[in-house]
């Protein structure tokens, strides 16, 4: 499996830390953030491919954080994860361009699969952009 960078955003410390530990053990580069605000800071200063985002958090909630991420780093893929399914937030999240909307409890394997899929999309997306840039570059007369 390719190595990629994941940011786990969840206000529940136990979940966050354990998830970080387990994903790292699988060879991913993982950071944790305990709030939407912190997540945005981390995104600005370090390279992130996929964000695993809890929908229900105190302060800035998952949906709002997602909106900010789309503005800040449009290429970063976001996977929403929640224990509280709400139709509205689910639909809203998908509309805002989240990669998927997952529900707890979820085991690590399917989770990693989802994250990998998200990374794959991001990679393809990036490739396309790079190719387009390259074409433009080459088309430009020397």
């Amino acid at each position: 499996m390719r190595e990629f960078n994941v940011l786990v955003v969840d206000d529940e410390e136990e979940f966050r830390d354990l998830t970080v530990k387990r994903l790292e053990k699988r060879g991913l580069k993982v950071l944790g953030a305990e709030s939407g605000k912190q997540a945005l800071e981390v995104l600005e200063h370090s390279h992130t491919d996929v964000v695993l985002l809890d929908v229900k958090m105190p302060g800035m909630d998952g949906i709002e954080t997602l909106r900010q991420i789309r503005i800040l780093k449009p290429l970063v893929e976001v996977v929403l994860l929640t224990g509280h399914a709400s139709v509205d937030s689910g639909i809203e999240g998908m509309k805002l361009g989240a990669f998927d909307y997952l529900m707890k409890p979820i085991e690590l394997e399917p989770l990693i699969e989802k994250l990998a899929d998200a990374f794959e999309r991001k990679r393809l997306q990036q490739e396309k952009i790079e190719q387009a840039q390259m074409k433009r570059h080459m088309a430009m007369p020397g």
């Binding site: 354990l18 409890p105 979820i106 085991e107």
Partner: peptide, 20 residues
């Protein structure tokens, strides 16, 4: 169901961690 989902997540996480 909502309230149970979070503890369920922790149980499966912890068990998975032991398993790993």
């Amino acid at each position: 169901a909502h309230e149970i989902n979070n503890p369920l997540q922790m149980i499966t996480n912890q068990a998975g961690w032991i398993g790993e």
